[in-house]
Simulated assay, not measured.
Amino acid sequence: MIRPGLLVDVDSVPGDAVLLDTRLTTSGAPGRERYDAGHLPGATYVDLDDDLADPPGADGRHPLPTPERFVAAMQRAGVCQDSTVVVYDDGPATAAARLWWLLRDYGHDDVLVLDGGLRAWSDAGRPVSTTPTASGPGDWTGRPGQLPTVGADGAAGLARDGGLIDVRAAVRFRGEQEPLDPVAGHIPGAVNAPLTDLTDELGRFLPSSALAAHFEALSVSGSARVAAYCGSGVTACQTLLALRLAGLEDGALYPGSWSGWITDPSRPVALGG
């Protein structure tokens, strides 16, 4: 099954697609080591830190990459203007959705996320490879700005209106635990909707009807202005993908997310909730 511009399952991956492997790792083996240990045959590795983000700074731990950085990475990976691109990670699209979002933001809509990622591929008995893929240079170019984003002020405004979704685990939202950033808590007014509620136990997205009901319970509708944030602007893209799967309009990304919000000590921090 293919949902155009959104998902593809393991039985429907186009044979001529450019396959891009990207892994989000906060512990354990780095993404490159996971790729080397096993990946879809023909897939090229794309590194989150080197290719899909700029260095950490005032805009958070994973600022959006400069056009020069991102375009060069896609060309090295063999992406061309007319390529169908399939992106994947270990499973629930927590990293793959960032790459999906970036390609769409640069105007490349022929991009699909492998639903369930490498886990779904392996569970279906499909072969994996340990041989790195030597991709030919691609001719892809694009220009960012096709999808909505908000800065800190915009995020604060949406939070006041109930339209800002914090996708982190509840214990991080409430400020009870913070394993990655120096300040715990959340943006005042944000609604907590952990991204783990969007996928099943195998890392596949819930049916569109279930996702629509999920967002309806958050008072998110097709006419609502909504943005999503996470710790550093990466995993929030999974929620933006889920919004589209639910049949809703494109939500905005707050790229700086929590790690960018707290770089300014004058911004308020909320606990509990």
Rank of each mutant, 00 (worst) to 15 (best):
V128A: 13
A93Y: 01
C80G: 15
D105V: 11
L158A: 03
D197C: 15
G142P: 14
Q75M: 03
P188V: 11
P92G: 10
N192Y: 02
L198S: 08
D153A: 14
M74R: 14
E201Q: 10
V183E: 03
G142V: 06
L103W: 06
P132S: 09
V128N: 07
E176I: 00
F173T: 13
A156I: 03
T196W: 01
T149V: 14
V85C: 06
S129D: 10
P194E: 08
R126P: 04
R174Y: 00
L103E: 00
P194S: 12
G175D: 09
G189L: 06
D110F: 09
A184K: 07
L198N: 03
W101G: 14
V167P: 02
A156R: 02
W121Q: 01
D153Q: 12
P179A: 15
V150A: 08
T141E: 04
Q81W: 00
M74Q: 07
L99I: 04
I187R: 06
C80E: 10
W100I: 06
W140T: 15
G151Y: 01
A124Q: 02
A120H: 00
L112F: 06
L180K: 04
D110R: 15
D109W: 02
D82N: 15
W101N: 09
P137F: 02
T199W: 02
P137Q: 13
R126Y: 00
V85A: 11
T141R: 13
T141V: 11
L198K: 07
A77I: 01
R119L: 13
A124M: 01
P144G: 12
H186G: 13
R104I: 02
A120T: 13
E178L: 10
V183T: 14
A152C: 06
A124D: 00
N192A: 13
L118Q: 09
A152S: 05
A134G: 11
V113P: 00
E176G: 01
W101A: 03
D110K: 15
D153I: 10
R126D: 04
R160L: 11
S122H: 05
A170W: 00
A77N: 06
R160I: 12
C80W: 09
P127G: 14
L202Q: 10
G138K: 09
A170L: 09
G163T: 06
P148V: 12
G189D: 08
W100A: 00
A169W: 05
V150I: 14
G78K: 08
H108L: 02
V191Y: 01
C80P: 08
D90C: 15
A155W: 07
A77E: 01
W140E: 12
D153H: 07
Y106L: 08
V128Q: 07
A155N: 07
G189Y: 03
Q75W: 00
P144V: 08
W100H: 04
T141D: 06
L195W: 05
R119A: 13
